[in-house]
Structures are given as structure tokens and as C-alpha cells.
Amino acid sequence: MGQKVIIVHPAELVRRGLVSALEDLQRTRIISVATFAEVRSEDYKAAAKLLLLVPVTCHHTSELLELRTKIGDHLFIGILLHDKEKYKTDHFDKVLRLDAPARQLREIAERFFEQDDTGLNDELTAREKEVLRLIALGNTNKTIAESLFISTHTVISHRKNITEKLGIKSIPGLTVYAIIQKIVAPTDISADQLS
């Protein structure tokens, strides 16, 4: 079981851009290929949820339809290069222009994958909690990035979101919050983390 993202696009730079917008989604594997023909059944067959990104001009209409029947919980996003491209709207759940902000795609994906991930006691996503835990343990942005396999840029953006959601800016403050919410145990914290 698991969550899968399949990115299909002939342009490598586009694929890379899409991967980086989605790379740190929690418990999600990303597969990125140039053409639809390269998508193999083992890429998606065990998936509980599938997010598929393909150019709207993708000709594999019947395969797309078949894929829908195989994975119950799916979201197909068509990528539109320019307004003049012709496509069938009913093939896609959403259409996104290539020049749309990465944040928009990110939000769609988060909504799709994390819609049942609403925490009881706070407003942080599972990923943000993980980042917060590592902050409280005294890690730098760089080591957090390394241990979560994401870029430092993404770590910084998580930190910004955490601070905005909690209204807590300082590292000692975030550490205390993490202890209060039982994200870390007080015994895991070194004394100088609060100073």
C-alpha cells in the first residue's frame, strides 16, 4: 500500500520541476517518466492513492481510462502548455497550466493525500511535525534536509509554515511547544536547546 505520484512529461526540466514541487510529501513515492508507455503496472498497482500528472495532449486515452478503474482513489491532472491546446476535459479531474505557481500544485496534492490526516490536537501536518521534532532535537536546516531527503529550501519553507501556524518564532519556543504536544520527550532535549 502507499501513495504514488506518477509524472509523465517529455521535457526533463518540467519533470524535475514537478518532482521538486512534490518531493517531500509524506509517505509518497514519485515516479517520473518521459512517456505514458513507460508507466508500468508495478508502478501503481499496490497504490492506495494515485496522483497522475500527464500532458493534456496525452494520446493514451483508453489506458488512462483503464488506470482509473484500477486505482479507486485517484486524481488525474492534465498539464496544459498553452490555452490553444485541444484536449478532452473528461479525461482529467483537474487541468493545470504549466505556468501555474508550484504552490498551487502542492496544495492540490496535499489536499488529495492528506485529506484524512487531520491531527486532533494541533494544526501541523505530519511532515511539519517531523521537521519540528528535528528542530527540537537541535538539528540544523542542513541536517534536517539530509535526514528527510529534501532540500534545505524546503526545510526553510516548512519552518516558515510552522512558525506561522503556531505563532512561535524562537527555537526555544518551538522546543517547548514540541514537548507540550508530546512530539518529543523532555529527556531527549539537551539543556542548551532552550538557551
Partner: peptide, 17 residues
């Protein structure tokens, strides 16, 4: 600025949590 942040955090920790 730092001193300011932490005082603000103290307020939020109490008011919110």
C-alpha cells in the same frame, strides 16, 4: 529583536497551549 521574539513566544505558549 531576539528578546522580543521570545517574549512573544511566551505569550503564545500560554495563551494558545
Amino acid at each position: 529583536e531576539h528578546v522580543d521574539f521570545e517574549l512573544d513566544d511566551l505569550k503564545n505558549l500560554i495563551l494558545k497551549y
